[in-house]
């Protein structure tokens, strides 16, 4: 596109935007062409859409007649509560004429994500929580339907053993990490992403379920919470200083192999930080600083000690 054409296009867009913003009656002016609802509601839809994937909505929480809040509740708009007025879509089509579209929820939908999501949040506003707004999923315009299957009897993202596969569709680097030899049991389906992350909320950088990284870890590892008499400073601050919670090549999901990990911070007088190399292997001079549990062979209380003589994290 030529520069002046681009400029013209941007200007035209700006003019259109200003018109939209400053014309509150714009929507009202379009009443004449307001799409119509279908004549018979869901009965019209099921004349064509009678496949099991569509009908599965009747095994979901969205089709409870007695719950007037659901699309199929008394007086509600049934399929058109979410898919919008379908009068034209359901109407007769002349030969060669393309059937009028209806609101679709998928990655290929032509409807902007924000507008797709508003169909859902019209009822599910409370489910978003305070942390959705401004979070990565919100700012990147992730559609509700990217994760949720609203027709399914069981929404996979709400089942622990299935959830990670839904998240991994986008978070593919984390899928690779989950395959590492030392990782939380996500690959086996015994732990889900939601154990730590709140896809809808959480105000921390990575949308954690608790207020801080450590608080989230303590949800399952409360034994490390302390406070201890003798604290290990980075442990009190951020478990992620030493651990890679998505998986690691090293036992304990450590970010580096001990003793080098410890030597990244510790070079003490009286306890020299000696280079540990192949000379410390079993076939040479086995080194207690390298083999077994390395530094933890002695400093076993690396997360903190509550022993009065435990200042060196050995008791």
């Amino acid at each position: 596109m030529k520069p002046h054409a681009l400029t013209r296009r941007i200007l035209a867009q700006l003019v259109l935007l200003v018109a939209l913003i400053t014309s509150p009656g714009l929507l009202a002016q379009s009443d004449d062409s307001e799409p119509e609802y279908s004549r018979k509601g869901a009965d019209s839809c099921f004349a064509c859409h009678d496949d099991q994937a569509t009908l599965a909505v009747f095994r979901s929480k969205h089709a409870i007649r007695q719950d007037s809040r659901t699309p199929f509740g008394h007086g509600q708009l049934q399929c058109e509560a979410c898919h919008g007025p379908g009068g034209e879509h359901a109407g007769r089509v002349r030969r060669g004429q393309e059937r009028a579209p209806i609101t679709a929820f998928s990655s290929g939908s032509t409807l902007p994500v924000m507008e797709q999501n508003q169909f859902c949040t019209a009822c599910h506003q409370d489910d978003l929580g305070f942390g959705w707004h401004g979070g990565a999923h919100d700012m990147e315009e992730v559609a509700c339907s990217d994760c949720h299957s609203s027709h399914a009897a069981t929404d996979p993202v709400l089942v622990s053993s299935m959830q990670a596969q839904v998240c991994f569709d986008c978070h593919q680097q984390q899928r690779t990490q989950a395959m590492k030899p030392f990782a939380h049991p996500v690959r086996e389906g015994k732990m889900d992403c939601g154990s730590c992350h709140s896809a809808h909320g959480g105000s921390s950088d990575t949308r954690l379920t608790q207020q801080a990284t450590n608080d989230t870890c303590f949800g399952c590892h409360a034994e490390q919470r302390g406070p201890y008499l003798w604290e290990h400073a980075p442990v009190s601050e951020n478990c992620g200083d030493c651990h890679d919670p998505h998986g690691s090549n090293h036992p304990g999901m450590l970010s580096l192999r001990a003793p080098m990990l410890c030597q990244s911070c510790h070079s003490q007088s009286g306890h020299p930080s000696i280079a540990q190399d192949a000379s410390g292997l079993p076939d040479a001079t086995p080194s207690p600083l390298l083999l077994g549990q390395s530094c933890l062979n002695c400093h076993s209380q690396v997360h903190g000690s509550n022993h009065p003589s435990g200042s060196k994290l050995m008791r």
Partner: peptide, 9 residues
């Protein structure tokens, strides 16, 4: 049209 429908709803 889909966008219009959504906006109206």
């Amino acid at each position: 049209q889909a966008g219009q429908i959504a906006l109206l709803v």
